[in-house]
Design a protein around this nucleic acid. Structure first.
Lengths: 234, 234
DNA sequence: ACCTGAACACCGTTCAAGT
DNA sequence: ACCTGAACACCGTTCAAGT
């Protein structure tokens, strides 16, 4: 009895990347069909949000039918996972050409992933659902980890640092996301100061800084903590 | 033209908490119906996962019908938000009775929220969807921020620290969540070492530590970074 | 006044029937 | 061999009809 791995799971990716239906670039006929379908899905999600994305809308945009989609993908989750991986491929080469050190590697990675999320904010829910383990995500993880090891970080610290920066970027994007057109900080500031004095007091200072400054501040804080850890057990 | 706030949004919570249908504890007849419905929803989600949770299953469990649910809640999102807030209410009193300092406050908060997520892992996707702004979430934020201010943290740093710890706990829970029965670390370790040498090398060290140690390590790292920031601009 | 069966407009997924 | 209309079993939400 062979178990069928759930889409988006590591085992599923292993199966998919090993299968002959996986897109082959370089040699042979590239399966442009699949690539085009995923690109179309990404565009639809960017334009109308992941909430409005259905297999019927994708089939319509492709001039096909929903049943045909199942000849290219196992199910909707697979399409969403491929969409996220396609967007992560836009992150560019991480680390940069000549990183000044491990801090530079992680800082660049953080800003590049943030750029991807800024370009595709609708992907945030899907990105949070599963740890991305598609080919582009794996390639990025490999590049960054290799650079960190090259700069002398211990393996355990390198892995944790990669995860910490990734989580920070996603967490920041969630926090920054507006609800109902008004930032969360406005909501906190308008709370009754007598029942929530501390929230109101701290909300004032929240709106003083720009999102970019806030992002850089938190990222610097994270790297500072990592540096302390590195020096503590070198 | 009055805009109808989206469920789960700050504006929506303002409307709901101000409405007479909101549960009133202490005085008058408590609307045990609503509380019981939310508690049942939480139990169903705990038992069968948020994926299997539908209004029909909730109505069946209550011996009622889906249409009746709409006399108590605006829609499904409202029920999910109330479920998350109910679970957050289990976090206990944060900060502890006699915190040794702002580090103790944040550390306790981190461990308590982690305990909630351990008890209700199925709530993770819902918790990531929206920043929780229900009554229990607000009360916790107020308590923690007040304690941080009392211990001398600047308002801006206190707000950032609260958010950073919250994001860290959620991010850790996502990372720890297993997929397909096998931890993510196993997947990384089994990758081809020739194509992904750095991932394989760092994966070995990932499985060496227990989740509890890993959690405490990362939290300590975060607090270390915050301490540096506090000392830099007091 | 309060509740609800049944309908509505969807959804992901499957498959017999077309070419 | 490849595609797809139509069906299936759902879903959240609404409302006319019951009591």
């Amino acid at each position: 009895m062979t178990s069928t791995p759930a889409p988006g799971s590591p085992a599923w990716w292993l199966r998919r990347t090993a299968s002959p239906t996986a897109p082959r670039r370089g040699r042979g006929r590239p399966s442009l069909d699949t690539d085009h379908m995923v690109a179309t899905a990404l565009r639809l999600i960017d334009e109308h949000g992941v909430h409005a994305f259905s297999l019927r809308t994708l089939a319509d945009a492709l001039g096909s039918s929903t049943a045909t989609l199942y000849r290219h993908f196992a199910n909707k989750d697979e399409i969403l996972a491929l969409t996220v991986d396609l967007a992560l491929g836009e992150a560019g080469t991480v680390p940069p050409a000549a990183p000044a050190g491990w801090r530079d590697v992680l800082s660049t990675m953080g800003h590049q992933v943030r750029a991807v999320l800024t370009r595709h904010p609708s992907l945030l829910p899907t990105l949070m659902d599963h740890v991305p383990v598609g080919p582009n995500a794996l390639a990025q993880r490999e590049r960054v980890l290799a650079a960190l090891l090259r700069h002398g970080l211990q393996p355990a610290l390198a892995a944790r640092a990669f995860t910490a920066v990734g989580h920070y970027v996603i967490g920041f994007a969630v926090q920054q996301r507006e609800s109902d057109g008004a930032p969360l900080a406005d909501y906190y500031r308008d709370l009754d100061p007598t029942t929530h004095p501390a929230i109101a007091a701290t909300a004032e200072s929240l709106t003083a800084v720009t999102p970019d400054d806030e992002f850089a501040f938190g990222l610097g804080l994270l790297l500072e903590g990592l540096a302390r850890q590195k020096d503590a057990s070198p």
